[in-house]
């Protein structure tokens, strides 16, 4: 079962102001709780040109996503911002495949029990219910930083590796690199507030 909730338009609208938009929407999971009406309401509140919208299955699967991206290549090319309506895994996979594009998630993932997405091993979602991907270039520090840091790398990040395990990449180095590539390093200056650990039932 999957349960997501749609983010408040106050979080999304500043990200899409005067930009052409492409929308990915995922309805893949069995037993999915995907709030169709709220999603449509958020989309309706966006006063920008929507150049394309793809409603698909299993955005969490990178192989599928490569095909989707090919199929919608022209629309995606025209878009300045890609909005993803899916669980955190789907949003991370799309971000990783379109790592030179601004990809934002419109959902907070609350629950993924029993079905962790098809590439959950590489793209972890902790179902924290307060999705952070819009501030991190689509890479999740909640799931992938050893200290759950929300304000950038600690003093132990060296050579792209985490001090806790030399085989593990420092996700904040990866976030820095991706935001640098997107010309969005100022996002790193944001003071990330304390997380609400009580949002998710998971």
């Amino acid at each position: 079962m999957l349960a997501v909730q749609i983010k408040a338009k106050e979080e999304i609208l500043p990200l899409v102001s005067s930009k052409r938009i492409f929308i990915f929407e995922c309805l893949g999971c069995h037993d999915v709780y995907y709030p169709v009406e709220e999603a449509q309401k958020l989309i309706d509140s966006i006063d920008q040109e929507i150049v394309g919208r793809a409603t698909l299955d299993y955005l969490c699967h990178a192989d599928y996503d490569r095909e989707y991206i090919k199929a919608y290549a022209r629309e995606i090319e025209r878009a300045e911002v890609i909005l993803v309506f899916s669980c955190g895994v789907g949003a991370q996979v799309v971000s990783s495949l379109l790592d030179d594009r601004k990809v934002y998630t419109c959902c907070d993932t609350l629950y993924l029990a029993g079905f962790q997405g098809l590439t959950a091993k590489e793209f972890d979602c902790d179902q924290c219910g307060e999705c952070y991907l819009n501030y991190t270039g689509g890479l999740c520090p909640v799931a992938l930083c050893s200290k759950n840091l929300l304000n950038g790398p600690c003093g132990g990040s060296q050579g792209g590796k985490c001090e806790v395990d030399p085989d593990m990449p420092c996700v904040w180095q990866e976030i820095f690199d991706r935001l640098a590539g997107l010309g969005q390093l100022e996002t790193m200056d944001r003071l990330g507030p304390p997380k609400k650990w009580n949002v998710s039932p998971a």
Binding site: P153, Q158, G160
Partner: peptide, 30 residues
């Protein structure tokens, strides 16, 4: 605290700025 020798180096001054913004009166370095 701040570590000028950790990576990415380009983020180490911005990170200090965040700590100042958050409320630090003094900093001790690595």
């Amino acid at each position: 605290a701040e570590n000028p020798f950790a990576d990415p180096f380009e983020f180490r001054v911005p990170r200090l700025a965040k700590k100042v913004e958050a409320g630090a009166d003094f900093i001790q370095t690595q």
